[in-house]
Amino acid sequence: MHILYLVPHVPNPTKIRSHFQVRGLIDAGHQVTVVTLNRSLTDAKNIAKLQQYGVKVIAANLSRYQSFWSAFKTLPTRYPLQSRFMWSSQLMNDIREVLKNDPPDIIHVEHLRMAAYGLELLSDWPIVWDAVDFLSSLYGQAQTFTTSLLNRQIYAVESKRLQAYERWLSTQFPATLVISRKDQALFQENNIYSDRIHYQPQGLPLIPTSASNERANNLLVITGTLNYHPNIASVHYFVDKILPLVQRSFPDIQLQLVGANPAKSIEAMQTNPAIKITGFVPSITDYLSHSTIALAPVIYGSGIQIKVLEAFLTSTPLVATSVALRGLDVQDGREVLIADTPEEFAIAIERLLSDPKLRTEIGEAGRKYIEANHDLTQTTAKLISIYQQVIESGELST
């Protein structure tokens, strides 16, 4: 099968959804042509890596000015800023050339930001839209947590527009994919095409796990892209309210913040001798495998928290908030310790630090959860099955 895969960001290890979907499809013997935007030198390097893996890549350059100008033009309309943020007329022309010269069996469109391209092609091509999550939910939560009055107003308007737009999009495409059962329920609410909303789990390759004696002592780790606003809020919550409590019992505790593009407020934390910030790393799983405990102190978010799945994948014992576990069928004390106040979070960390046996049990249970629910081979097979259903149905647009 030939899949034309439209994605706003170049698939790479920091963009887990597209990175492993493309990898899974290639490994299953399918042809994938990635269509994306080249916005930086890093993007150019990631494009080269994709090509080395056997992926054909079509990319158009897109400047920050072009993105903001396209988004700005939606202000007098009912459309959200996000709907045009990744629009490029050049890329649309390139897509049409590919369709003419190397027609795919199906078009896969990832994220609301790329949906505009899919809408242009709906009448002639079978298309699957991967919404990933219910984006308006994230913006609604961000409105509550931001300290900026301007941002609060922007999030309020954008959240309402996003909700109407993404619900409408889910009625336009023959199939809409989401990353969790929770997001599936949100899209299906009052939707006459609810049967088109498919739960497509995040897949991960089942890498070997580390032996317990290879882990450091008293080393905590938080992973994620560190300029992403929910991650910034999570790190501040932990460092400001939880870390001092843990240090009372474990004064030698160390915290690693592992992820690309740390915000200035996070970079400033390097003055604390207990905190190390890595910036971008080639393999987050290597850092998880070396740590004592992984943390997910998430206070708002949507979809599935990839940091949770990666901790499970590496058998790293995890302490997380209930918000971080949204959409996952896990239990407190089995795959994870759940803590929703600073005091509870600190106690859970101290409990794991003091009990090697419990750390092993929690880590092993998390790994079993991944093997049962997020094996890349299984999720790829499910994705291909959805593609085949759309192709065989012959349904193009509503």
Rank of each mutant, 00 (worst) to 15 (best):
D124W: 12
G301T: 07
T144M: 12
G140S: 01
S83P: 01
R39Y: 05
T171K: 09
E335W: 05
F20A: 09
I154E: 08
A365K: 03
S210I: 13
Y387F: 05
G333Y: 09
P297K: 07
T379F: 03
F20Y: 15
A71E: 07
F68H: 09
L169A: 09
E344C: 01
S315N: 15
T314W: 06
F145A: 10
L75N: 07
H19G: 08
D130G: 03
N101F: 11
L81P: 06
M86D: 15
I16N: 10
A381E: 06
F173V: 11
N191L: 03
T209V: 14
Y139W: 10
I107A: 04
L75I: 00
Y228I: 06
K241T: 07
V10D: 02
S210C: 10
N231K: 05
S283M: 14
I277Y: 10
I154S: 07
D375C: 09
P205W: 12
N61W: 02
G279I: 05
D124Y: 12
P11L: 11
S63M: 01
A60R: 10
Q163P: 13
E335K: 02
T271R: 13
P11Q: 10
L337R: 03
L91Q: 09
S393M: 01
A48E: 04
N190D: 11
V239A: 00
D94N: 13
I362D: 13
A216V: 15
F145N: 12
K182L: 04
L37V: 05
E166I: 02
A320V: 10
I277K: 13
S302I: 02
F134G: 10
Y287P: 09
E166V: 08
N12I: 03
D183Q: 04
M86Y: 15
I306K: 11
I127D: 11
D195E: 01
G327P: 15
Y193S: 09
Q388P: 05
Y287V: 10
D130L: 07
L41A: 13
T271H: 14
V157F: 01
H2N: 02
E361C: 09
L295N: 14
P174M: 03
V128I: 15
W129L: 13
Q202S: 14
I154Q: 03
R17P: 01
I293W: 02
I284M: 08
S302V: 01
N38L: 08
R181S: 04
N213G: 10
T380I: 00
Y155V: 04
G301P: 00
S180L: 00
E214F: 14
K357F: 02
A296P: 15
D102P: 03
F187V: 07
Q184D: 01
Q247Y: 13
S170C: 06
L318P: 01
T380M: 04
L62I: 12
D133W: 05
G259S: 07
L220N: 11
G24A: 04
G303V: 07
V281H: 09
H19P: 10
A44W: 00
Y53T: 04
I3V: 15
R113F: 12
N261D: 15
Q254L: 08
H111N: 15
T316F: 01
D133A: 08
F173S: 13
D133V: 02
Q51K: 01
T341N: 09
G363S: 12
Q21A: 05
T285N: 06
Q21H: 06
S137A: 06
G24P: 08
Y228H: 12
P273S: 12
